[in-house]
Design a protein around this nucleic acid. Structure first.
Length: 233
RNA sequence: CGCAGGACGGUGU
């Protein structure tokens, strides 16, 4: 069977690593696109080691990684929590002379966060030339995952100051941080963002808000969330 | 003209 790059590219996310590898093995000629698609497939399914292995193999075939390759390998480093390889891939990227884009930027932030290295995550974030909600979200949920609720809320407030509207992912992390800090006042502010964004009916917020208010000891607010009441004022 | 890469909460296991 010979499957074209286009087909490979189209369905990467639907395939298990097993299927992805099978398809890859049945393609007669490989390019950076087919290699990257395979590595992305591994990375997506938390097969970090296989992603790194195949990245090494790709390089040994003399194929030069592109932005797609790098972002997938960085994602694999994050899921493995492999800080050494993270430094390695970051270094390779810098020396590649590829121009970093938004995806690379937030992937790096996420990679260092998942390795537990918030210092580098923050440094990358601060150095980004442009940021979108994913970049912000990667760092905020990084702080949140590392149980640095203060860091998460500080960043959230920085967003508010810049009038950047938080999205679902960011709000979820902020709510979690408010719960850890028992910051009920801030929690209500975040709750208002949720309402303004029309996300109250999202079931994820029901349980996160309930958890947050419960940790804050605000049982009245818990009831309101349950009844799906809007904030009167 | 399509076409491969990025952040995900609570609970339980």
């Amino acid at each position: 069977v010979n499957v074209g790059n286009t087909l490979l590219a189209m369905y990467t996310k639907c395939w298990s690593p097993r299927e992805g590898l099978f398809i890859f093995n049945n393609i007669s000629s490989h390019s950076v696109v087919t290699w990257s698609a395979l590595i992305a497939c591994f990375a997506d399914h938390n097969y970090g080691l296989q992603a790194l292995e195949h990245f090494e193999r790709m390089q040994s075939q003399g194929i030069t990684p592109n932005l797609f390759t790098f972002s997938s390998v960085m994602k694999a480093c994050g899921s493995l929590g492999n800080l050494n390889y993270s430094y390695h891939i970051h270094d390779l990227f810098v020396r590649s002379s590829l121009m970093p884009d938004l995806v690379i930027g937030s992937t790096l932030v996420d990679m260092y966060s998942k390795c537990g290295n918030m210092k580098d995550a923050r440094q990358v974030f601060d150095a980004l030339e442009s940021r979108d909600l994913v970049s912000w979200g990667a760092l905020i949920s990084g702080y949140s995952m590392q149980e640095d609720a203060v860091g998460a809320l500080e960043l959230f407030e920085k967003m508010e100051q810049q009038d950047i509207k938080p999205n679902r992912v960011i709000l979820l992390s902020a709510i979690k941080a408010c719960g850890s800090l028992k910051a009920v006042r801030k929690g209500k502010v975040v709750h208002n963002h949720v309402i303004e964004s029309g996300l109250e009916s999202d079931l994820a917020f029901g349980s996160s808000l309930t958890d947050m208010y419960a940790k804050c000891g605000s049982l009245g607010e818990v009831c309101k969330v349950f009844k799906g009441l809007q904030n009167p004022d």
